[in-house]
Amino acid sequence: MLKRLMLPVLLVLLTGCSSAISEYKLGSDYMLRQASIVPQMDALHASQLIPSTVTEVAWDDNYILAKQQLADENSANPDASLNKAKREQYWIIDIRHDKRYGPYNEKQFEEQKKEFNITEALQLQSISTYTKS
């Protein structure tokens, strides 16, 4: 009986440990968690969620920028890699006004950054920079 319970308990513990490693705080109100950007107060800011798979992120006191890679609808398709650029989306979260903008393509994203006067110093970086253990 004890042996049967040990496996599920062990799996829960290992799963819990892996999720703790892949979290990173983005400012005071958001977290990068499991390749998603989530508000720390989920119920109040649920519309600000950027679902997985976030591949790149940048932030300052005013904005969070994110690049999202959409899942390929047919990963067995050899031509799927040809459409990869079309499967990327960009997002901007205005932290001060609690608003999410996007999804954008790369050109729209760059235009919106200019409109919001987001400095060139705020550059997207791979999430692996922040989630390495």
Results as ranks from 00 to 15, higher is better:
Pro8Ser: 15
Val9Lys: 11
Leu10Gln: 08
Leu11Ala: 12
Leu11Ser: 06
Leu11Tyr: 09
Leu11Arg: 12
Val12Phe: 06
Val12Ala: 08
Leu13Glu: 02
Leu13Gly: 13
Leu13Phe: 10
Thr15Asn: 06
Thr15Ala: 14
Ser19His: 01
Ala20Gly: 06
Ile21Pro: 00
Ser22Pro: 00
Glu23Trp: 00
Glu23His: 00
Lys25Asn: 02
Leu26His: 02
Ser28Pro: 01
Ser28Arg: 05
Ser28Gly: 01
Ser28Cys: 01
Asp29Tyr: 08
Tyr30Asp: 02
Leu32Met: 10
Arg33His: 04
Gln34Cys: 01
Ala35Gln: 10
Ser36Asp: 04
Ile37Tyr: 05
Val38His: 05
Asp42Lys: 12
Ala43Pro: 04
His45Ser: 15
Ala46Met: 08
Ser47Pro: 01
Gln48Phe: 13
Gln48Pro: 05
Pro51Glu: 14
Thr55Gln: 11
Glu56Pro: 00
Ala58Ile: 07
Ile64Pro: 03
Leu65Ile: 10
Ala66Leu: 09
Leu70Gln: 09
Asp72Trp: 13
Asn74Trp: 12
Ser75Thr: 10
Ala76Val: 13
Pro78Gln: 15
Pro78Ser: 10
Asp79Trp: 11
Ala80Val: 15
Ser81Arg: 13
Ser81Leu: 11
Asn83Arg: 13
Ala85Trp: 03
Ala85Tyr: 10
Lys86Asp: 15
Glu88Arg: 14
Gln89Asn: 14
Tyr90Leu: 15
Trp91Pro: 12
Trp91Ile: 09
Trp91Ser: 11
Ile93Arg: 15
